[in-house]
């Protein structure tokens, strides 16, 4: 079951800092998950299209530029609009503590801030899949 988890790791917006995204992508792949990395400078539309085309279960967004309050909600809204709200969105980057609750209210499943061990993200994804009702 776990080895079928398919995740899009995406860099929305103009931010070029991809160290975190790449480290997480590698760690998830090493944990046996299928990871697709979008590359830099993706629009929310591009990310959502990739997620739907690839039949992904999760989209992981990485933003270090401060644009998270604009970009995360756009991705969530587009997923709903395209009838793909079952794709879960999580994220990380330079995200102030105070922004986490509002992001979760908007539908972001989890935010991983700097210093999170990669193993925690792997565990979180596995738990999330275990908790999902098979369709």
């Amino acid at each position: 079951m776990h080895d079928q988890i398919r995740i899009i790791v995406a860099k929305p917006g103009l931010d070029g800092h991809d160290r975190g995204a790449k480290v997480v992508a590698r760690a998830l792949r090493d944990a046996g998950m299928e990871v697709i990395y979008t590359g830099l400078h993706q629009t929310p539309e591009q990310i959502v299209s990739t997620a739907i085309q690839e039949d992904a279960g999760f989209v992981g967004l990485s933003v270090l530029s401060g644009a998270h309050m604009t970009v995360f909600p756009k991705v969530i809204a587009l997923l709903r609009e395209r009838d793909a709200a079952d794709i879960e969105v999580f994220g990380g980057g330079i995200i102030p503590e105070a922004d986490i609750a509002p992001l979760k209210e908007l539908g972001v499943a989890e935010i991983f801030t700097p210093g999170t061990p990669t193993g925690h993200i792997v565990e979180w994804l596995r738990d999330r899949v275990d908790g999902m009702v098979p369709s």
Partner: peptide, 22 residues
């Protein structure tokens, strides 16, 4: 900011959310 660094005006769609940030 990133739109300036990427050669976009502040009113370009790709600049949304990034204006004046970094």
């Amino acid at each position: 900011d990133l739109p300036t660094q990427m050669g976009h005006d502040s009113d370009a769609p790709i600049a949304s959310g990034e204006v004046g940030k970094v």
